[in-house]
Design a protein around this nucleic acid. Sequence first.
DNA 1: ATCGCCTGTGTAATCGATTCCACGAGGAGG
DNA 2: CCTCCTCGTGGAATCGATTACACAGGCGAT
Lengths: 338, 338
Amino acid sequence: MASIKDVAAEAGLSVATVSRVLNDHPSVSEEARTRVLAAVATLGYRPNAVARSLRTDQTRTLGLVISDVLNPYFTELARSVEEEARALGYSVIIGNADERPDLQDHHVRTLLDRRIDGLLVSPTDGGSPLMLDAARGGTPMVFVDRWIRGVDVPVVRADGQSAVQDLVAHLHGLGHRRLAIIAGPAATTTGRERVDAFRAALAAYGIPLPDAYTGQGDFQAESGRRVTEGFLDLPEPPEVVFAADNLMALGALDAIRARGLRVPDDIALAAFDDIPWFVHTDPPITAVAQPTGALGRAAVRALVDRIEGRTPRSVTLPARLVVRRSCGEPPATNRSKP
Amino acid sequence: MASIKDVAAEAGLSVATVSRVLNDHPSVSEEARTRVLAAVATLGYRPNAVARSLRTDQTRTLGLVISDVLNPYFTELARSVEEEARALGYSVIIGNADERPDLQDHHVRTLLDRRIDGLLVSPTDGGSPLMLDAARGGTPMVFVDRWIRGVDVPVVRADGQSAVQDLVAHLHGLGHRRLAIIAGPAATTTGRERVDAFRAALAAYGIPLPDAYTGQGDFQAESGRRVTEGFLDLPEPPEVVFAADNLMALGALDAIRARGLRVPDDIALAAFDDIPWFVHTDPPITAVAQPTGALGRAAVRALVDRIEGRTPRSVTLPARLVVRRSCGEPPATNRSKP
DNA sequence: ATCGCCTGTGTAATCGATTCCACGAGGAGG
DNA sequence: CCTCCTCGTGGAATCGATTACACAGGCGAT
């Protein structure tokens, strides 16, 4: 593969001049410019990003470590992150943690070794020493969706509190009183916050959230199934199951289906994180929708601000409730066929 | 960030010796080894992958350019690719083409600039000059899922022919005679092959595939909706719609639903590419399932073979039919409630 | 005519690693 | 005792870019 020296030789100029043309430095003669450009074209030369990064100490690359690529929420997030980064002149390298702290660490480490300019993380756990050190050590970093307390890192996330209130109001209005939740891992902020928001919203109606009605999941489908089976085995099973993410909702649906029960007639189901597929499930699932694209874009902007020396700001965007049929009577607009 | 020089100074040795310890070169004294390791630990030193790549001319990184991250098929593929690559000591950088040739080129170009060791591509089109040049120019490359004719690049893909035959047999057995297909872009191999396989399978039953029953889609949901509306507007609409990918099947389902029609009673639906969500749609969708994980792993192995000087082999794995309820009477095993 | 400045160019240092080559010490064999 | 190896180590070149610095030539001002 041709290097800058080959181009210089071909153009009959020094590598310095070639470099200047390529980085359009002002003081280059028109003559030199055309000669270099011609040489570049005939050789099919492309600058070596590795060498350039070594010299300039910047890679124009962002790392994104997400918890689970198979979760449509995160893939949409990844897509919007890449889009915004590209618009700002950066590339993105995605690392998938699969909800495993060890894998998360693996990706953070290799990303750091590659000297990425900044890191976007949706932490799977409370934060390994590695990640904490990186954050404190000055690596530009922004948390997205999930975050870690006690580190001075901007957070870009959605606030589901009012949407969860709306959900509980909706459920209460439908006559449901025994409401259960499948929680996410307590090590994640989203795992805890969603339960807290749910409990608070229930409290407003004087409804308690007993331990038996809070199951511990891990944001994966299988745990949703397991927890839901536990709920159904209870002497007095809940009337509603609220899953703290879409994958666990899917598992819950499986478990309910396996018992020959029907949604919403026998038991209602709702989920946090809306995804396109929820429109097409049987029945369509009521969900709290995050502004995923906006989240990804805001996170990139915050990170790039940090990288380029501006002061990044944390951002919190509201989530909203999308009512479908999985909790009972359809919303008025859909009632063409009662 | 500490460099190898700092480690050398801390250990009171030369950079050469430090480097040898780090790459466990045989001729290093035990004494030197422990001193270096101690220095590495106190400084928290991590080798700079950029510098190392520049010197060794290898990045231990694979590029993966996929057509659409939002398609669960491709995200599963990406996951298995990353997994196998990691097992073999490589990292993966994913580029999402969003079914756009210009974006595909953008990603190929930046991956090449980064001097990745090899490229895995599922081409969105017939192949841009850039990609063709790279292939011919000696960049290790393997096509996965889709491929391009006339280039000497190994292909790892699934053969859907017999599964499509099974599908047509299933449909024919259910009494369907007017079968339509939503094709993928003619510029992609999968776009063409799936139509060809379908037409061939129909021919075996003496059923033609008229032009009116072959709609042109682009592998995205919206095109599935549009084409299906066209089918439904026909004086004699088809009894079955077969979508050449899962996203277009989703669009088709939308269009059918919007007319107030029911699947499978009013019209049957089947799809190429099975995904977990198809179990939960209303009704569950009959689909041709690819061995996605195996495909990703085989592709990585072929690419790494090529990179490390062995001779890579093309691989074709069989797809299989998964019958659910979207085409009519459920399979016998599921018939608990007739 | 001289000075200084501006423009365009080249030489060489530099980034952080790897690795070839040279060298000194020590041991084995004659 | 001398020679020859082997082993462990360090010096320095190298990868492909960027960029500080030096410098030559031209031009305007004095």
